[in-house]
Design a protein around this nucleic acid. Structure first.
Lengths: 346, 346
DNA sequence: GTGAAAGCGCTAACAA
DNA sequence: TTGTTAGCGCTTTCAC
């Protein structure tokens, strides 16, 4: 590829001239070459090569009305999940899928409430063809903004305003949280455990409530004293475990809503000299890479394919954007399966 | 803001018509309104408001040749740093600064060697005005690609091909690794420690070598048996500590090249019943949020302002892009200061 | 200070 | 199959 003297890249016009064809034909070739005779295709391609031609994106967007870019929107409370392996995997999946479709990833980080206006303007400005947003908390203003802008969007994680999984017209991708939780609790029960406690996540996230629902699916008559709440962090898991132990010293199993909390719980269990899984069996959720395998004992947990979820989000969006495809404008939501991974903690 | 019937946003033409002015005047107002009489400014602004006008980015880019976007390029080996709080802070800083200048962040993740071509094409395509890339390892092909594309770029971390800090024309932002290391070791020495060991990072990263150089600045005659290498991870820090202890049971202080390794070292020290800082004083580097304060004892360490570095990278790039500013095309590099944070480990 | 007009580089009817 | 032509929506000389 020839070096470019700054500010003067060759245009399609130049390519056409060099190849001895019209701009239209050159354009056709550059865009796949359908319906152009082979000799001409070759000529144009050669010219492209010799000139080091690269299409001007702005000009193309101006006429096609497609930007070839997708926004990934991360709301403020979620910003810390940047340092969450969870999120990084999801992003990676998204990136891979977008890249495979020659689509750019524009990262939109909301730093504070004042940023909503900026996002609204950005989306309204048609800078991107669509957006990917992450599971929001109750009363998050973002969905409204997104909807108003008319930007096709796929959510990651079931949005809290959809009343039930699979519900509504909002497309989203989520793990089968409820089913996974059910499997976890059922597994503990099959082990013969009778007093299975649950450390739930924050009640304003659907991943928490769905997992709690799964727990209840199996333990219809679950004693409320067996249920506590954490914030999906190690420390909150430890605190929850202490609470649980104080209230119900007789418990013989714990299902924690994520691995982080499970590892906190494990710490407390060990501190108190309670054997795992001997006296108390423990199951986590997520199968987080750097956590589940490294605890002592390693965690039995529910695995979900996070990177795959990212890919799926992107794929769903892209498919929805592709007018050729027969799909409706709003692709349906997808619930990805979970699997129980047996390790040593239960 | 009025709802937009999809696909038909108001144009500047419409605004001009409504305000009863020419398109040119409307454009001037939208772009700051310099040299337009107040009454007209008001009229246009009102029209903009009533119509919910948002400029068409593609059209604007086509004529101005500026995209208003900056790429953040993350090379493959660095991808995992996504889950590194370090990186997330840097990104946050970048994002804030870019946002403040109405510039978009396009994330370019390199998934594998095959992606270099894609990046090259992307940069050559003029999709972005500039790029931000992260400290590369030796023989990384990225810099060459970037240079060839002519994309103005600021690096995060001193690139390994600059022979010395402050060297060369490549603009970068980096912490004063060497100075920080010097301060750490000097501090240990002032404490009266005589046999100060060093757990260095991987030798192909300048942050490692610069810190090692700082260590040597103070301990000119450092015995090689006092120096080991880790990979900036907790486990490698633990392993390095064991090695050190086996070789030099007489050591009375350790300077670890980052907090992660320091915490690994701390674990080993505790396992072996060696008191910290009583018998062995320990200093880390980075002052990583979720690490340094939470160890037992909390780490004395060298703090660097990571988010600030991100902001700085963006600011440097933006300034370089701004042709109005008198600055040269390549802004100079910046070395950010470090400070010693005294906690309990030394 | 304001407007008229010329493009920026490309795609997409429409003709040939 | 190929070429001609008309814009996409905006900024920016250049006259007025």
């Amino acid at each position: 590829m020839p070096e470019q003297s700054p500010g003067s890249r060759p245009t399609l016009e130049a390519v056409a001239a060099r190849a001895g064809v019209s701009r239209a034909t050159a354009s056709r070739v550059v865009n796949g070459g359908a319906g152009v005779r082979q000799p001409l295709v070759d000529k144009v391609l050669r010219a492209v090569d010799e000139l080091g031609y690269v299409p001007n994106h702005a000009a193309r967007t101006l006429v096609t009305r497609r930007t070839g870019a997708v926004a990934v929107i991360i709301a403020e409370p979620e910003i810390r999940i940047f340092s969450d392996p969870f999120f990084s995997q999801q992003i990676r999946g998204i990136s891979k899928e977008l890249t495979a479709h020659d689509t750019q990833l524009v990262l939109l980080l909301l730093e504070g409430p004042g940023d909503f206006g900026r996002i609204a303007r950005y989306l309204a400005g048609g800078h991107v063809d669509g957006a990917l947003a992450f599971s929001l908390h109750i009363d998050d203003p973002l969905p409204a903004i997104i909807r108003r802008s008319g930007t096709p969007t796929v959510y990651g994680g079931r949005p809290s305003w959809t009343s039930a999984p699979g519900d509504q017209g909002v497309p989203y991708v989520d793990a089968d949280n409820r089913g996974g939780a059910r499997a976890a609790v059922q597994y503990l029960r099959d082990l013969g455990r009778e007093r299975i406690a649950h450390i739930a996540g924050p009640p304003d996230q659907t991943s928490s409530t769905d997992r709690l629902d799964g727990y209840r699916d199996v333990l219809l008559d679950a004693d409320p004293s067996l249920i506590t709440e954490g914030e999906f962090t190690v420390d909150s898991g430890a605190r929850a475990m202490r609470e649980l132990l104080d209230r119900r010293p007789d418990l013989d199993a714990v299902f924690a809503a994520n691995d982080l909390m499970a590892s906190g719980a494990l710490r407390v269990l060990r501190e108190r000299g309670i054997s795992v899984p001997g006296e108390v069996a423990l199951v986590g959720f997520d199968d987080m890479e750097s956590i589940a395998e490294d605890t002592d004992p390693p965690l039995t947990t529910i695995r979900q394919d996070v990177e795959g979820q990212g890919r799926l989000m992107a794929r769903l969006l892209l498919r929805g954007l592709d007018k050729d495809s027969a799909e409706a404008r709003s692709p349906a939501s997808v619930i990805t399966p979970t699997t129980l991974v047996r390790r040593a903690s239960a």
